[in-house]
Design a protein around this nucleic acid. Structure first.
Length: 598
RNA sequence: GGCUCCGUAGCUCAGCUGGAUAGAGCAUCCGCCUUCUAAGCGGACGGUCACAGGUUCGAAUCCUGUCGGAGUCGCCA
């Protein structure tokens, strides 16, 4: 009989599914997963219990029937009924060997692609003018970057957009603030007709100083707030001096931010800002009005998107979802206006079928409003827009993380810290002491960045977690460096094998550690599709960790180059090589790169 | 007050479309470097899955309630 190709769980599911159908039960009951214990076989299926309920029969009886049909099929060594009706499946070595060699020969290391690719935009990181990144931006950046990679690897056509915060009230705030601080600058002179200076009047450091002060002042000083609002409206209306000044803010900020992203190994396909859709807003507002969904309310123009009224704090009633504020009473476009115009742009210019917004969980209500408005206006449907929220990083006190001095920890400083720590560790271990200083520094960077990214990505994105500097600086246990270490050990073996002329051959699973490693390798597709479906890289991160762990156990128990039998040597070398391939793919999908040695 | 999320080992977190004895890492303790990198491997210790009911052959997982924590509730993004 011919052995099936592909994932083991799928092969078994097919046999079992057909057996369930044969006795009048749904195919899905044949789904099986890795057995929870070794003595329960390689895979286990719990479908007989559920089937027993629907048929009103004893589950054990059903399990026994299924087992009788499966027993003796190609690839199945043994199938047992246990407990109330569990099916324990033991696989034949030939099936395992088959799968191992298949993964070895596959460029995608056993991962599949989606049947119908979609055009997807991942909106992530969301850097802003005048703000350098702090630890809070770490999540938005690396989760979004990983999701982009995962979607692209699965076959979708994906564009990552930074969605630069370069428009709106904060811009007016910066202008108004600078006007007060340096009123003599030509940008503020309405009669100025010459070209404006090419050199920016401010540095990023200036902007970072000005912005928080202004933001604080605007909350208590109404007069000041009105000035900022006026400046915002004038900027958007196209006042030349303001536009020129704003262009400096944007350039200064963007260049600095790009350097920081580069340090994290993050790049964007699109670096579009909120300002890039400004020209679409007038027509969009007209369109909303024409469709009859733009309503005057309290001096502003809004789109209502609620479906019912709920009790309000003050005892009255309010919509269950707040309306989209399109034009403020000052006549300015708002945050949501820009977001809606961006949706329109993404639909028309990029034919986006799905947009993922990788943004802090706290903005969920805002996105709900915008998405509903988009649906109502007939732009992108509600189901084509997803807010991929994530939790905040808190300090040990449960509040948003602060440094000992009470300030926010800049991302740049955090990166420097982990890099330094990695370099020290390298020095300590003395591994790379014969390497050029430049390569040593590079290894330190890779290890540091891996630690940083993995520490975050191993958590489910949705929940907040405690930011623990010691944990970020620790390179032992379930950490990024542990995964790199597994890669590096395999690479060292491959180098040595090449020197000794040992050639990888056909994989033959014999030892327990080899079997475990193969079964883990086989789980790649499941982890990948899980991460894809749930839009959470932690599932893939967990797989990578399990794979590194399975390899480490194999490494400790099964000598590769020292194996006395030539065929065993060739088989183990091939298994190690297949592991490296899959591990490097998985790490790449997490945005992590492995060095040659460490 | 409305809505959303969370409460699992001393700590940080997985598991949540119901399945066998609830898993990792850290911390603590015990083994393992004359053999491919010990940033490693193996083992021990550690849990009334916040609490109380309910559904079920079976609940950390589903439902209801209570307690505790976080976030959010239109003119900043």
């Amino acid at each position: 009989m011919q052995l099936q190709q592909g994932q083991l769980a799928k092969i078994i599911g097919l046999s079992l599914g057909n057996a369930f159908v044969a006795i009048g039960l749904p195919y899905e009951l044949g789904q099986s997963g890795r057995a929870t214990k070794r003595e329960f076989g390689d895979f286990q299926c719990n479908g007989a219990m559920a089937g027993g309920k629907t048929l009103g029969k004893n589950p054990r009886e059903i399990a026994t029937q299924i087992a009788a049909m499966i027993a003796g099929q190609a690839g199945i060594e043994k199938i047992e009924v246990a407990g109330p009706g569990f099916l324990n499946i033991f696989l034949e070595p030939t099936l395992l060997n088959n799968r191992a060699n298949e993964i070895l020969d596959d460029d995608r290391a056993g991962a599949e692609i989606v049947p119908v690719p979609r055009k997807i935009i991942v909106d992530y990181a969301g850097p802003n003018v005048a703000k350098s990144m702090h630890v809070g931006h770490l999540r938005a950046t690396i989760i979004g970057d990983s999701l982009k990679r995962i979607f692209r690897f699965r076959g979708d056509e994906v564009l990552g957009d930074a969605h630069f915060g370069d428009w709106g009230f904060q811009m007016g705030l910066l202008i108004a603030s600078l006007a007060q601080e340096q009123p003599d600058l030509p940008y503020f002179d309405e009669n100025h007709t010459d070209a404006y200076p090419e050199i920016s009047p401010v540095t990023l450091a200036d902007l970072e100083r000005i912005y928080p002060q202004a933001a604080a002042k605007v909350k208590v000083d109404e007069n000041y707030r009105d000035k900022a609002r006026k400046a915002t409206a004038e900027l958007q209306a196209g006042r030349a001096g303001y536009r020129a000044l704003w262009a400096h803010f944007v350039t200064v900020s963007r260049e600095a931010l790009k350097r920081e992203f580069a340090a994290l190994g993050v790049e964007f396909d699109l670096w579009l800002g909120e300002s890039d859709v400004d020209h679409l807003i007038a027509d969009m507002v007209e369109d909303l009005a024409k469709k009859g969904i733009l309503v005057d309310d309290q001096g502003a123009k809004v789109v209502f998107v609620h479906d019912k009224m709920v009790p309000a704090k003050d005892g009255g009633e309010r919509p269950n979802v707040p309306p989209l504020l399109v034009i403020s009473s000052e006549g300015s476009a708002m945050y949501g206006t820009t977001d809606l115009a961006t949706i329109l742009d993404r639909k028309n210019r990029f034919q986006a079928e799905l947009v993922l917004y990788c943004v802090d969980q706290r903005q969920s209500e805002h996105f709900e409003t915008v998405f509903r408005a988009s649906d109502k206006a007939g732009y992108l449907r509600r189901d084509q827009l997803e807010h991929i929220g994530f939790g905040t990083m808190n300090g040990k006190d449960g509040k948003p993380f602060k440094t000992r001095e009470g300030g926010v920890l800049k991302l740049h400083d955090l990166i420097t810290m982990v890099r330094t720590k990695a370099a020290d560790k390298l020095q300590e271990a003395g591994v790379a002491k014969d390497l050029p200083a430049e390569e040593r520094a590079q290894i330190g960077d890779m290890v540091g960045i891996a630690a940083l990214k993995f520490a975050d990505l191993q958590n489910f994105r949705g929940t907040s977690y405690v930011f623990d500097l010691d944990k970020f600086l620790s390179f032992e246990g379930k950490t990024g460096p542990y995964l790199l270490y597994a890669c590096v050990r395999i690479k060292a073996i491959l180098r040595k094998a090449a020197e000794q002329g040992v050639i990888a051959g056909e994989i033959m699973i014999a030892e327990e550690a080899e079997r475990e490693l193969l079964l883990t390798l086989d789980g790649f597709e499941l982890a990948l599709s899980g991460a894809y479906e749930k839009r959470s890289p932690h599932i893939l991160a967990d797989h990578a960790y399990n794979l590194a762990g399975a390899f480490s156990a194999f490494y400790a128990n099964c000598p590769i180059l020292a194996a006395s039998d030539g065929a065993v040597r060739a088989s183990r070398l091939a298994l190690a090589s297949a592991t490296l391939k899959q591990l490097e793919i998985a790490l790449d999908l997490l945005g992590i790169q492995a060095p040659e040695r460490m």
